[in-house]
């Protein structure tokens, strides 16, 4: 584990062509790290995320992605992700290959990755049409009962990037609130980068059962206060719902999107 600047961490740990998971289920989405990936012009990434959210809408619109693995591609409570739609419907700025799952499948696939298993077994996709369009949705027979169960390959990202509330000075990380799949996504990955609101002397977890990722499961920790905006960091700042509403307008039009990116992403860092 090393403490790095955001620029150093992304330059060192995210490579062109990597399978990258930037997780955070509505909460603690690593936007600052995503913006750094865009600024460094990373290309041909396979982006993995249950809910692509605005962070992948931005990465897709900026031309960083070759493929998207996901389970729900909307702007929560607002509507479409317009950059994602433009890529799928019109191939702008580049064609986007998609591998689509359900939440249950992706959550199980991360857990399988963290467990060192080749695949996740669960009950899912009954009667759905997705099974005809995603060859990675298959079935296995239970050796004990003979039941047919669903199977999807384990998710094993080259690198997982998450945002958390705190790290201590040794690089142990505390996540509180809606914890999503971040623990699984970090443990499933070959490399892990964590941005945090602050580095503190003592994590002071609120319970012995708090979600703590030991420093030795992480490659780099970056102090990036506000790094989850416009999503949120429980205990630090709220979700900026008005920005999520505003994004609908910003992202609808290619030129307005590009202008926003120039002003808010490329001119920073």
């Amino acid at each position: 584990m090393e403490f790095l600047s955001l620029k150093e961490a992304i330059a060192e740990y995210v490579e062109d062509g990597d399978v990258v998971a930037m997780e955070g289920f509505t909460h603690l989405i690593p936007f600052a790290a995503g913006h750094e990936v865009i600024r460094q012009g990373k290309r041909n990434l396979t982006l993995v995320r249950m809910t692509p959210d605005l962070i992948y809408d931005q990465l897709i619109g900026a031309g960083c992605a070759r493929k998207l693995v996901f389970s729900w591609g909307g702007n929560p409570g607002v509507g479409s992700l317009h950059r994602f739609r433009d890529a799928v419907e019109n191939g702008w700025p580049a064609p986007l290959e998609i591998e689509e799952h359900s939440h249950a499948a992706m959550a199980a696939a991360y857990a399988a990755g963290a467990s060192g298993l080749p695949c996740a077994v669960f009950r899912g996709y009954a009667g759905t049409d997705l099974v005809d369009h995603n060859p990675n949705i298959r079935t296995v027979e239970c050796p004990f009962t003979g039941e047919t169960l669903s199977a999807v390959p384990a998710l094993k990202p080259d690198v997982t990037v998450i945002h958390a509330q705190k790290a201590d000075r040794r690089g142990n990380v505390l996540i509180e609130g809606i914890v999503g799949v971040q623990k699984e996504a970090v443990l499933a990955a070959r490399k892990a980068v964590v941005t945090v609101e602050e580095v503190v002397d003592d994590l002071a977890p609120s319970s012995p059962n708090s979600v703590v990722l030991p420093a030795w499961t992480i490659d780099a920790v970056v102090e990036a206060p506000g790094g989850a905006w416009p999503s949120y960091a429980y205990g630090y700042y709220d979700r900026d719902n008005s920005f999520y509403l505003e994004w609908d307008e910003i992202s609808r039009d290619r030129e307005r999107f590009s202008a926003w990116m120039a002003d808010h992403v490329f001119s920073h860092g």
Partner: peptide, 10 residues
């Protein structure tokens, strides 16, 4: 292109 299934299929 709509958002997709999310949790709904299960």
């Amino acid at each position: 292109r709509l958002p997709g299934g999310g949790g709904a299929p299960e």
